[in-house]
Amino acid sequence: MSPERRRKAEELAARYPRRQSALIPFLQYCQEQDGFVTRQAIRDGAEMCGLTEAEVESIASFYTLLFRQSVGKHLIQVCRTLSCMLRGAGELQEHIRRRLGVRNGETTPDGLFTYEEVECLAACDRAPCLQHNLMFHYNVTPDEFDRLLETWRASRPAVSLPAE
């Protein structure tokens, strides 16, 4: 484990009565740095908690916000559950898929945009909603999406999965 990671691991572990509690925050931290949970991160997490790599892999694979493959600089997660669906999420999704030329779960060939349809984001009163790099956007119409897309294209966020 790199010294910097070790420091972070210790800092996180100190927050909890037991070290393993810091595993998921630690993987989130690694993911913020590497863009996804790498094999090295799995190893480091195992070392930090006295677990086997297998155990860490099992744990990591459970959570949808821990990615085992790299995602685009822009992670676009659109809600697909009932309230958003009632207010046009389906049309928004179709629009985005067409605009980006990807299917659910895919990344654009330039590696910039990853598109995911996700479950209820607890913003049902401002439907349809989406998250861009975990930041909320509400009442997103197809036109609004196009506008957002332009601003995203113009920006190059350092991380797509912020940890803190």
Partner: peptide
Amino acid sequence: RGAGAYICGEETAMLESIEG
């Protein structure tokens, strides 16, 4: 912070999740 799993709202799943 959670990491993406509705079931972690169920109280015992939440405890497991806090335990890492």
